[in-house]
Amino acid sequence: MNRIESVFSRLKSQDKAALIPFITAGDPDSATTVALMHQLTRSGVDLIELGVPFSDPMADGPTIQRSSERALKHHISLKDVLAMVAQFRKMNQSTPVVLMGYANPIEAMGYKRFVEEASRSGVDGVLVVDYPPEESAEWVRHLKDQGIDPIFLLSPTTPESRVKHVAELAKGYVYYVSLKGVTGASHLDLQDVSSKLSQLRAHIRIPIGVGFGIRDEQTARSIAERADAVVIGSRIVEEIEHSQAADLLANVGALVESLRHAIDARSNHSSDIG
């Protein structure tokens, strides 16, 4: 069982939803990222999505775009991100790390070299925003060769035929984008999320995480009542942006603890995965 499976299987036995934060590697600087990852695990997260900064983050809103720009000021490269994961792994063997980013830094490194180095660094999954399943056959083969899970996005507009296609390719978990638009937007319809998740579960046999538009404890709890994992990105990145260096770990830690508390307080959990 790999790290991602272990985490979800433990959570299932505890009847809990996973808390997945997103941070951009190198934001605000490379020295902070590994410390921040350890802080996140201490504050109770189950898996970390680590953003690979890119110059043109088309699917992200202004908050995450700015975090990318901050990281790129320090010239953080994909190689640097992998080094951060390796550094994190020296102290932490159990928390899965999923890289999330855009295709071109991986294209520049080459599939083969990337998956080998990612595997060596202790990366557990990779989500490439602009590799939809149609363009992913070779990419997924390379990932699976190295035992890395290909994570895919599903959206409110994904038709059933594509859900089936994603179900065949995806491993680890799938990431349901709970609203139309970019990261950091805010108009989440819980009714929609519930009905869409039950449709997805007809085909998807692995855990389903929900992200985009989750900005407060109450929404996090409501999502936790419906999904297997709650992904929180822009809200955490905002906390990083607005914190002074000296308070950054404490501020993010406090925010994450409150979210953890909220999602563990969920009721009526009706997940029927596995």
């Binding site: 699917a59 602009d130 939809p132 149609e134 895919f152 996005l153 507009t157 994904t158 038709p159």
Partner: peptide
Amino acid sequence: KRGHFGPYGGTFVAETLISA
């Protein structure tokens, strides 16, 4: 049919754009 000119072209976008 999927918009490829040899190795170039294609549809490299986020899932949210695919149905459009």
